[in-house]
């Protein structure tokens, strides 16, 4: 869904774009509308926290002042303001996870993909993130989370599918918030 591979056959449409037939530039622009929290975080070790978070808006050509304002508020929300100029290797696992979350959210994406986003977070921070994802979902962002955290699944009864050995085993209909996906 993050367009790392293209379909060998059939049709995949993301945010109204047929990814197989789209031109490379169109796919780049589509990626700019997708927020991604990868499991391996993919922080750039040469850049500090601020510059890591600023990557997506800089690539999309957002002005420096806007970037500065956005990042300041998102760092404050995630409790990372004091780590603004720290390098990733100077951060704990939870802090790094929060930087990856900030980087995914800074562009206010139309689609947010989160791969095990609560893995390295303390319980309180995990629930804080779940609240934030729900708020994003209510604001119109499509949020897709991949997780092994069953407590999270139980606490957030959104439409869900379960995969086992790459095969679909359970399809849970939406218990609330019809039309939202988590």
């Amino acid at each position: 869904m993050h367009l790392e591979v293209l379909p060998d056959e059939g049709q995949v449409e993301i945010l109204g774009v047929d990814v197989a037939s789209a031109k490379r530039r169109q796919r780049s622009l589509l990626r700019q509308r997708i927020g991604f929290i990868p499991q391996d975080l993919r922080l750039l070790s040469e850049l500090d926290v601020f510059d890591n978070i600023a990557l997506p808006p800089r690539l999309s050509g957002t002005g420096a002042e806007t970037i500065d304002l956005e990042i300041r508020s998102i760092l404050e929300w995630l409790g990372l303001s004091h780590k603004k100029h720290a390098r990733p290797e100077e951060l704990s696992g939870g802090e790094r996870q929060r930087v990856a979350i900030a980087r995914a959210l800074v562009m206010r994406p139309a689609l947010l993909l989160a791969d095990e986003p609560t893995n390295a977070l303390a319980e309180r921070q995990g629930w804080q993130l779940v609240d934030a994802l729900q708020a994003l979902s209510r604001a119109g962002t499509t949020v897709i989370v991949a997780t092994h955290n069953e407590a999270l699944m139980r606490a957030a009864p959104y439409p869900a599918i379960a995969l086992e050995n790459g095969r679909l085993t359970v399809v849970a209909p939406a218990a609330q918030g019809e039309g939202e996906t988590q």
């Binding site: 993050h2 530039r25 780049s28 990626r31 509308r33 993919r42 990557l55 997506p56 690539l59």
Partner: peptide, 9 residues
């Protein structure tokens, strides 16, 4: 990583 964030070729 840059490509994944939407950096154009």
């Amino acid at each position: 990583i840059l490509h994944g964030f939407g950096a154009t070729d």
